[in-house]
Design a protein around this nucleic acid. Sequence first.
DNA 1: CCGCGCACTGAGCAAGCGCTTAGCGAACTG
DNA 2: CAGTTCGCTAAGCGCTTGCTCAGTGCGCGG
Lengths: 209, 209
Amino acid sequence: MGAEAERAAGGREEWADVTPDAARRLVSAAVEAFAERGYHATTTRDIAGRAGMSPAALYIHYKTKEELLYRISGIGHEQALRIMGAAVAAEGTATERLGDAVRAFASWHAEHHTTARVIQYELQALGPEHYAEITDLRRRTDRALRQIIQDGADTGEFRADDVPGTTLAVLSLCVDVARWFSADGPRTPDEVGALYAGLVLRMVGAETV
Amino acid sequence: MGAEAERAAGGREEWADVTPDAARRLVSAAVEAFAERGYHATTTRDIAGRAGMSPAALYIHYKTKEELLYRISGIGHEQALRIMGAAVAAEGTATERLGDAVRAFASWHAEHHTTARVIQYELQALGPEHYAEITDLRRRTDRALRQIIQDGADTGEFRADDVPGTTLAVLSLCVDVARWFSADGPRTPDEVGALYAGLVLRMVGAETV
DNA sequence: CCGCGCACTGAGCAAGCGCTTAGCGAACTG
DNA sequence: CAGTTCGCTAAGCGCTTGCTCAGTGCGCGG
């Protein structure tokens, strides 16, 4: 299912483990609204309206508007971490694993650019303890990617003098896809993934064919 | 003058051509507040308070809160465009010019990360016609960078199959510095510029020493 | 010393915000 | 078929928001 069809279906796939149905419709509506206008510019009335409910219905499923953002951030970052974690744990050379990691991570940010925009750019709206929790997930994603790059540097596959700096740059490059990507643009998510995988492999000085 | 000292001085250097003094203090206060909390989460009372004025004083110098953001965006993007434009117009090989452009552009986004964060991530809060004006400045920055990369591809210095895509990636990489950079972090703006210049030159397949 | 201009303030208005509460109707339980 | 539960709504509370306006004090030309 493409991102557009999925959105029309209320994010059935992406938010599959949010139940009951009304709670899922609210998450899906909130993601859309937050991505479009930003967290602070989005009203609870707008979210409830998009989900086809009255404003008060939101508070049956979520204590506050911030809790909605927290749930979205948690689920989204767990998906992102899972993608990166799978790549680091996979078989293959560091070059293969880095290419796969970037391809998957960048194309996820394109395919799910609505969700990605919210979880990457609305973090500061979280309360302090929720923020700390999410930051931990981000640190784990960073550590996974750094592991691959460190492996490549150790085996001599990569030419990376500054491993943390290179990791930061690669992560930053992929994350920022969420900011500029548009479904109406000339590139498909897979094309973005392929382009970025090639760019990053050259960036770390890997031998490419 | 470093960014910290300059902020303490009310952005005297960065906003030098904003007059009178009260208007400059307001711009400077607004940039700080917008960068910290985001446009929509910032109140006019907060901006005026930081500038040492009553809430009403803001409206003597600016018609609306949005106009403040517009002024900031205009000045900031003009600075960014000037940096990129200087690099494209400079003498030298494409490799040298791209290296200089990325070094200057990335380190500007680090040094002025407060301003950069506002002009790069709060754009959507602008009204439609102001948004269109700012978008035009951004397009010109993009065109300048693309010119350098195209030059390098033409002379055979660079290996870039997808020039617009590569341009987008390089720009995205530099812009995103504003999101993660912190003055308390381990890297100085100059170090970020040097790191990024090296990464980007490898990314485009330039021959480096 | 007067009086004008003007940057600025104190007080506050209308609108919109996040969130609460009382109550309703359909669905399930015994 | 009465009683209970539960998802949901209509109405609205208390507060904050962007912004306004009458008035104030200060500097400056005459």
